[in-house]
Structure formats: C-alpha cells, structure tokens
Design a protein around this nucleic acid. Structure first.
Lengths: 356, 356
DNA sequence: AGCCTCCACGCAATCGATTGCGAAGAAGCG
DNA sequence: CGCTTCTTCGCAATCGATTGCGTGGAGGCT
C-alpha cells in the first residue's frame, strides 16, 4: 500500500514510467544483477556477461525506455555524478561563459552540474559550498577563490576534490588564463603606441586575476624603463561604477595619464564613461584597454581594445580536469594563452562603421 | 570488504564524515525511525515523537554534523528536491537574472536547481529536458518555450509539473511580465513625444515576448489613429547584430521613421549602432526604446530608454509557483507589471554626465 | 575419458532514509 | 480498580542499483 502510493505519486509527479532493472530482468529472463552489468559494461573489456546477452538486454532496455535511477545508483556507489560550481555572479557574462564551458564538458563526461552564486562573499561561499556538499556532489569547481579566505584550504583539508577556475591560489589546481602575460600584452601594446604616462584600474586585491594582470602590466613598463608610480595604480570593483570611480580619480591627477589599463572589460567601460564625462575623447585623449574581450567590447560606440581570454575553453578544461581527478588520476594546473584585440579605444579610429 | 571500500572511497572523494541516522540512533538510544521522524518533523505537528525527544535528537544531530543523504531519501520517497531549469542561454543577462531569482527562491524552499542551455533549439530543448528528467528532477521551469514546438505539450501530457517563465504559451502556467502593457508603455511614451512615423524591431516570431510587446505597441498606435504599416515591423534576432541588421533595413525606408522600438535591449543597442553608422544621432534624429532595462542600458554613452521588467522577481515567482504545485496545490499564471524608464535615447539629453 | 579452468550468470547483502502498523505505557474516565 | 484512549516509539519492509562470491556448465588438455 505504501509502495503503491509512492509509485503513484512519483508517476503523477514526474510522469515517467518507472522502469526498473527488475522489470527488464523479468522480461529478459535473467537476473537483475546481469542486467546491471550488461548496461554498465564499458563496451571495451567488460566482464561477466556474454556479448550476446549484453546486446539483447540493451535492446530491451532501450525499447522499454529504461533510465537508471540516479538515487539508487548513488546510494550504492556513494557517487552522485554531479559537480558543484561556485561563481561570484552568474549575471557576470565572464563567469556565465566559463560556466557554459564547464557544463558542456561535464555533460559530455556524463556529469551534471549545479551552480550557485556567492556574490564573492566569504560567508556566502561557505554556506553555498556546504549546501552543495550536502547534496553530495562528487567535486567542486570554484570560480570565486579569494586569497584572503581559508575556505579553499579547508575544503582541501577535507579532501574534497576541487579545481579552481579563473582565479588561482598557490598550491591548488587551477585553470586560468596566463594573467601575467595578459597584462604584459596590454602594456606592450600601449608602449608600442608611444604611451609613457599610464595608469591601472587594478580590481579587487583578493582576486588573483586583477593582481596578476596588474603585475604583468607593471613589470613590462618597468622593464621598458618607465616604472608606473604607485599613485597611478588604484584598486576597484570589477563593474562599471567601480571602473568609473577609479577613473575619475586617475583623470584628476596632474599630469593626466594618456592611457588606462583596466583589468576587466566592465571596469573599462566605466573608465570610458568617466573619460567622456570629463569632456575628453576615448582613443584620442585617453587610450583605454580592457580585459576578457566580452562580446560587447567590439560593439561599443568606441570599440574597446581588450585582452581576449578563452573563457569558454577555460570552463571546459576545468571540468575535464576535475573529472580526471574523480577518476583517480591526478590533475594539473593549466594556464591558457590570452591574445590582444586592438580596437578604436587605443587606435583612435573613429570612422563610422569602425566598430563593426 | 565491499562496504569498507565504498566508504573509504566516499570518504576520500567527498571527505565528509558519513554520519547516518543509524549512528545518531545508537548514540541517542532510540530507533532510527524515531530519529528520522524527529528530524523531519515540521515543527508544527511532529509525527508521533515526543517534544523532548525531538529537541534532544536534533541537538545530537547538530553536534555530530549530520546531513541527510539525498540519495537515500530520494530512493524512498521518489522525490529528489531538485528543479530543472531550461534557458536559451545563460550568457544572456536577462535569463541569467531570471535564473538567479529562480535559484534563490528554490533554495529558500529547500530545493536545488539544475540549469541547462538549449540555445533556443528545439532538438536541444528535448535532449536537455530528457537529461534533466533522467536526473529525476521534481519539476521543470522552462524559460525557452517556443510557440512552434510541441515539447511543452508533450511534457504536460506526461504530467510533468512545469512552469513557464519569461515566455507564455496558451493554456500553460506561466510567469511573465505583461508584455502587451510593456509594448503600450513604449508606444505611449513615443506618442507623447510627438512621434508619428515609427518602426518596430520585433524579435523572433516563436517567442511570445517579442510578439506581445509588438502587439501592445501596434495596438496603442492604432488606437491613436496612427496605424504602423506592416513594412515598418521587422522580425529580428534578440542580439546586437540582429538589431543592427533590422535597423539598417528600417533606416533605408523613405520617409525614414523618427523612432524605433526594439523588443529587447540588445537589439536596441544594435539599432543605436546602425543609427550612428548612418551618420545620425540617437535621441535627436532617431529615438530608440528598448525592453528589459538591463543594467547596461543606463550606462551606455547615450543612455537607453527602456521598459523595465522585474526579471529577478519573475524568477522568484516562477520557482515558488512550481514548488506550490509540487506540494499538491494548484498554481496560477502571473503577469508582472513593467514600467518605463525614460532616458537620453528618446529625450535627446546629451549633456555630459546625463548617463549617470 | 577424466580433470581442471574459465566463462557467464545467479544469489544476496548492502547503501540510508521513510513510513504503515502494532505495541507498550501513561493518562483519563466511570 | 478496570477499561478505554492517546501518545510515543520500535519493527520491518521497501525504494533501485551495485558487486563480492559462489556455482553450474562448457570446453580444453592430457
């Protein structure tokens, strides 16, 4: 009676025919364990079931529309085939793109993903991570690692399989772009255009992305014998208002910098707005370089020069790395190469249609 | 041996002390069934467990760091407490924002969500929906319903609990903004500014959003005795290139329209780009109205007038509606009210800082 | 022809939580 | 004081899939 009620409810709720291994076994005239083996058999060298039986059972399972119940499998094996993903905000297109890559790769590997926003808040990060773990995800992809938090260390101590993405942390496996190189590319571009007085909108100090991009940029200028004074490097939030505020400060300096490198495209857009508000022209009076090359960058009225990072690919690699680790093999960190896309915000090309 | 291995593996993988009901029961000196009841008891009318026992067991569970194993619970109850969410693209900030609302509300109700991108492709929609169902989600929130696909009808026939969000479909429960009203708001705004020759970038014909926004807009102009000719209403993709292409066509008409309503902000940005490329000025030569009021709209060099829709709220309501249905009560469709945000793209205010 | 090996499959335990039913004890009532 | 009625909890079945171990039979080898 209990069972009847439960089945009926499940049937009503999810509307799917609850085909089980037992039903297949009955129809095939074999034991349920045989069916289990036949269906899980890795086509290669799987043991214990005759090849003929395998094809026969699979055909029957297909015909009946069998779908393995993940709950039953998870209960027995202790693995859920789900990956948890933590990001600052999914409404940030950078993270959304990375997540799409993660999900695509995970899906290919037979895993589902569960995302959660943390708003880059340490307290929230902990809560969301715990919630994911309570869901028994097999591993975690963290897109919001902070250098001033010990959450990652704690998770590692608990031996939870994890991979960082976008941001790095010493001693942890991560998949990022080579942010130092990216910063250097931006610097070399500006140097080649003759800029000598430059400034940096450096992002949040707890994020390796901003820190390393800034570092690479400063190193390149220092290497060219033109060290950037500390007063010309200001921290900022990663969004438009953050970039605008930082730029308003920088434009007030005397002498005014002729170029600004923002470690993030949205901050760069804020910089461009501040330049306009100051009555100056982007690309002529002040050059602006962003980072990530989001689709919008090329579509802006004055198209934005930006360091392109392979965001989607980064997500894919992070996911496959985690899956590799879950398979018992060891994962390794990766740094993907960024490239520079030069556009009107540094080249000063304002001809109609140039943004196209 | 089997068990040992499994536990050890789980321990290594997930790194969490696998505290079970049985362990708590042993320590508390009661039966596991009592523990189960004590922990699940809705504080209101707990099912047959003494109040004292309940507090005691809960304290013990807390102390031991007990976390219910979802696999065990799902296996027994047939419910996973997971919601599936289908969206065209998570990199579209509109859908990302809606999803954040969905996830927040679901989380509050004790559900987790699993998202999937479908790229608005019918074949992919079906595959992703099946994958989610195979995961045994309790219900579905669909953000990509197409009027030219029978997927929703099929899912409904299979009695799968579902709620549509953003887009509507006749006869289905949905949570949207009042798109007809939104279109009318845009029209009334332009009418009040004296525009008599207008055009519409109408979006994809299979999406109720674009269709209804267009309808509301056309109705309002027709009601004012100024029917918009069919030649001035062109379909488009929902992105920047889509809006640009449509606008290039519209700007070639003679006489040229003095205002363009795009049913989506990104299409509107494309329209603005086309206007610039034609050597015209947005807000002076051609007024542009968008829809959704994404954060970027206000930050553009020429800030964009847009119909603001409560995207996050829409997601929240959709999720709570679905949860309500899962609880056995009946859900109902909702239409949230949009409002118009007038800015420089129609008011022609180009003073520096106006975009702020 | 006898014995050994290996293949293919069945048996049954197990994972953790939930829940209908029954029983024991307490409390209330006549 | 006996009987009825709750309250509180234990018992055991159950969900579906996985897997170590055992077994029957076929085939090979001497």
């Amino acid at each position: 009676m209990d069972r009847q009620a439960t089945r009926a409810a499940a049937g009503t709720r999810a509307g799917r025919a609850p085909v089980t291994l037992a039903q297949i076994a009955r129809q095939a005239g074999v034991h349920v364990s045989t069916v289990s083996r036949a269906l899980s058999a890795d086509d290669a060298v799987r043991g214990g079931v005759g090849a003929e039986t395998v094809t026969q059972i699979r055909a029957l399972a297909e015909e009946l529309g069998y779908q393995r119940d993940p709950a039953g499998a998870a209960l027995r094996t202790g693995r859920s085939r789900m990956l948890g993903v933590l990001v600052p905000r999914l409404t940030d297109i950078v993270l959304a793109t990375i997540y799409e890559g993660i999900d695509a790769a995970a899906s290919t590997a037979g895993y589902h993903t569960v995302v959660a926003n943390t708003g880059d808040d340490p307290e929230m990060q902990r809560r969301r991570a715990d919630a994911l773990l309570a869901r028994r995800v097999d591993g975690l992809v963290l897109g919001d690692a902070r250098s001033d938090s010990d959450l990652v260390a704690e998770l590692a101590r608990r031996r939870i399989p994890l991979v960082l993405v976008s941001r790095r942390l010493p001693g942890r496996i991560s998949v990022t772009t080579d942010d130092v190189l990216g910063g250097r590319l931006a610097a070399e571009h500006l140097l080649s255009l003759g800029h000598r007085r430059v400034a940096v909108v450096a992002g949040e100090p707890y994020a390796s992305t901003g820190v390393e991009r800034t570092q690479g940029f400063l190193d390149a200028f220092a290497g060219a014998g033109l060290p950037v004074p500390a007063s010309h490097v200001v921290p900022s939030r990663f969004d438009v208002p953050g970039g605008r505020a930082a730029a308003e400060h920088l434009l007030g300096l005397a002498p005014r910098p002729t170029a600004v490198f923002a470690v993030n495209d949205f901050a760069a857009i804020g910089v461009m707005a501040a330049v306009r508000d100051a009555g100056l022209t982007v690309g002529r009076d002040v050059a602006v370089v962003g980072y990530n090359d989001v689709p919008l960058a090329a579509a802006l009225p004055v198209s934005l020069t930006s360091v392109r990072s392979p965001m989607y690919r980064m997500g894919e690699v992070a996911a496959t790395t985690l899956v590799t680790m879950l398979d018992g093999r060891s994962g390794r960190s990766r740094r993907l190469r960024p490239t520079l896309e030069a556009r009107a915000s540094t080249l000063g090309d304002h001809a109609p249609g140039a943004a196209r």
